[in-house]
Design a protein around this nucleic acid. Sequence first.
DNA 1: TTATTCTTGATAGTAAAACTATCATTTGTT
DNA 2: AACAAATGATAGTTTTACTATCAAGAATAA
Lengths: 230, 230
Amino acid sequence: MSIEIKIRLNNNLYLRDPQETTLGQRIIKDGIILIDEIGLEQFNFKKLAKKIGSTEASIYRYFENKHILLIYLVSWYWEWISYLIDMRTMNIESAEKRLKIIIKILAHASKNDPAINYVDQDILHRLIIAEGTKAYHTKAVDSENQKGFFLNYNQLTDKIGKIILEINPHFAYPNALASNLFEMANNHCYFAQHLPRLTDVQVEGDNFGEVEKMLCYFAFTLIGKVNEAE
Amino acid sequence: MSIEIKIRLNNNLYLRDPQETTLGQRIIKDGIILIDEIGLEQFNFKKLAKKIGSTEASIYRYFENKHILLIYLVSWYWEWISYLIDMRTMNIESAEKRLKIIIKILAHASKNDPAINYVDQDILHRLIIAEGTKAYHTKAVDSENQKGFFLNYNQLTDKIGKIILEINPHFAYPNALASNLFEMANNHCYFAQHLPRLTDVQVEGDNFGEVEKMLCYFAFTLIGKVNEAE
DNA sequence: TTATTCTTGATAGTAAAACTATCATTTGTT
DNA sequence: AACAAATGATAGTTTTACTATCAAGAATAA
């Protein structure tokens, strides 16, 4: 007996729902691990098939190609962040406090949730940081956006944007700030580790505390309300 | 007779300097056009060779592969932005005014400079917006960074960061803000056109005025000095 | 229980991508 | 005129990104 969390995603993202079968779950689980290991460019379905002891053809029965698999994983991440936000900001009155919690989630992604055993969330977080934006930086953005492939990102931005407006209803850029907090969280975790001259924060191991602090400073300074929560 | 601007780039980025020959310049010129047209994923040297009436083998004599060509183009852009900043902020006393000029450059990239006829800067700007970050989001970042492939971005960040510190010497995140202004400029031009729910700005044609305005608001609010220039 | 269907595995094959090698021209230099 | 350097032409290799076919096993329905 255990609680099982199922993350619902646009069913045009897959040919067969990977969450429904053990093979599908292994594609997700080891797909994340392998992309993290060798990078999206070196990754392909043949290598993944070998890793999970299956065949290329079988993986193609679940996902059209690796690009769609990436969008699936990224969507999964967006939806999971959304879920974490809902869980952890529930019953919290202060919008400032809620935004602080959101920023913590964006920076740390959070430790593994045992309720989902076919996704290693720490590795997925690293994958999103390194490869995430490739999902929507292609010539197919417009058509894929129309199919709703990026709905989860849009909704996440909406959700954070609304909380920003709660703090300051006159703030002119709620959605831009929301998406920027997300992108900045990922970028500066990456920069700290690979291109340190592009940032001022430092990351020791997987402690993204400084990233969180910076995002808080940026967000609350921009929104223009002194953080009453402290 | 004409003035010719030569942009110096890390010579490990190419096997033969493309700026030195007509074939090299055509690789750059039409390479930019073709990547913009079909996207980096669909782009390859065979198609480029056909476009410029040359051969695959000849292009490989200039660049190791399309990834290195991308880094070359991105570096060219960084260096060119740097040059524009130097030109247009020269002799301007006020650091605030200089930052405003920089933000204008980042958002608009600027119209074509006839001094460089083998690079269409408007198209390059669009390419950077769509494909730029792929240059440093790979498994090879660390080794390529060590080879100095991203030096131009580091230096650009330094340059902007120093001006930010001139405005407010106590600002804690000069480099992070600098790189974020660059990334945000590109992201929100892209979002406005392809994923409008992720931003609040609108872009009509190639008028990035709203992006510029937003970046100014973000930058000066964060740096914490009222903009005396207005 | 058998029959049927659905899923996976095994194998093979194709077209394109990502190169490398070789040699013949052309062009530019001394 | 002689030489070197750059380019073109051609061909070949390995890997990627698929698609097709058929057989074996598992699940389900009659």
